[in-house]
């Protein structure tokens, strides 16, 4: 199993990185890592743009979604039906996919392994025959050794960029009954998450911190583009919604007192009977 992953994931990325090291001027490993990170982000660009767009579209209708959720609190089936109807009405749906998230994590692990085995000639036997062996490998980039942890500059930069990036991601417009504990949690995490980033980046080789910094940088640019497109400003703020305009989160008069509403299955059943009757006649 592990050799399967080595063959299919580790060796191709090792080759690509070594090819870039051999191609870039000065044979800088750091420059190769930056290039490879940008290549990966470009591959993921269409999907991640689409995901941020769908996120904003969904945030726009968040008040209505809260209303539906409140109304069908006790009837999961009706709730999801009504949600689907709402999505259809506004022509939106969640577009986030989990695979790109996993891919980013896997790339991080592979980078870690590549940096850990070191950039020396001992491992050139892993290179494909058509990849030229780099004549020299330069690990030092602006005084930073890519294979050793960098204690301050890169981790702090990664944390700061992570903070800006998280801050820029839009948040749903405020709603009347905003008692969701996750909203408060989210606010704290904007500040706490970059700190975790700093501590993790301090303990990893500087090459990984570079990957982190470049990823955040590209995502900031992406978010900036999206925010401008939706007129949300650099920070990604939704214009304040007047409270009077928000839908009322109350039950409809015909609903059951416990917040459920019985869906009508009658029509479907009648159809089924018709079909069976016809079949018998044949």
């Amino acid at each position: 199993m592990s050799s399967f992953f080595t063959q299919i994931l580790f060796i191709p990325i090792y080759n690509l990185l070594m090819f870039l090291v051999g191609t870039v001027p000065g044979h800088q490993v750091a420059v190769a890592i930056i290039l490879l990170t940008i290549i990966i982000r470009i591959i993921l660009l269409p999907t991640s743009l689409k995901a941020s767009r769908s996120m904003i579209e969904l945030q726009k209708i968040q008040p209505e979604m809260t209303a539906v959720r409140e109304k069908y609190k006790k009837d999961q089936k009706m709730m999801s039906q009504e949600m689907m109807a709402l999505y259809k009405k506004h022509k939106v749906s969640p577009f986030g996919s989990c695979l790109p998230l996993i891919i980013q994590l896997v790339v991080l692990i592979i980078f870690y392994r590549v940096i850990m085995i070191g950039f020396n000639a001992d491992h050139f036997n892993l290179l494909y025959s058509f990849i030229k062996h780099p004549s020299s490998i330069n690990l030092i980039f602006w005084g930073v050794n890519v294979s050793k942890p960098n204690l301050w500059v890169l981790p702090l930069l990664a944390g700061a960029l992570q903070f800006i990036q998280t801050k820029m991601m839009p948040q749903p417009p405020a709603t009347k009954n905003a008692t969701d504990p996750m909203v408060a949690m989210n606010k704290q995490m904007i500040y706490f998450f970059p700190l975790i980033t700093i501590f993790i980046a301090r303990s990893l080789p500087a090459g990984l911190a570079i990957y982190w910094v470049i990823t955040s940088l590209v995502m900031i640019l992406q978010q900036w583009y999206i925010n401008n497109k939706y007129d949300l400003g650099f920070i990604g703020r939704f214009p304040a919604v007047a409270i009077a305009k928000l839908p009322e989160y109350t039950l409809e008069p015909d609903a059951n007192p416990d917040g459920t509403e019985k869906p009508e299955y009658k029509k479907e059943r009648a159809k089924g009977v018709e079909i069976t009757v016809r079949k018998r006649k044949l």
């Binding site: 945030q59 969640p94 949690m185 998450f193």
Partner: peptide
């Protein structure tokens, strides 16, 4: 988790395109 965790408030309809999330 973007669907259940710290940042779930950002994704009102859920992050994952499937229901239930991955």
């Amino acid at each position: 988790s973007p669907d259940h965790g710290w940042f779930s408030a950002r994704h009102p309809g859920g992050f994952c395109k499937y229901q239930p999330s991955c």
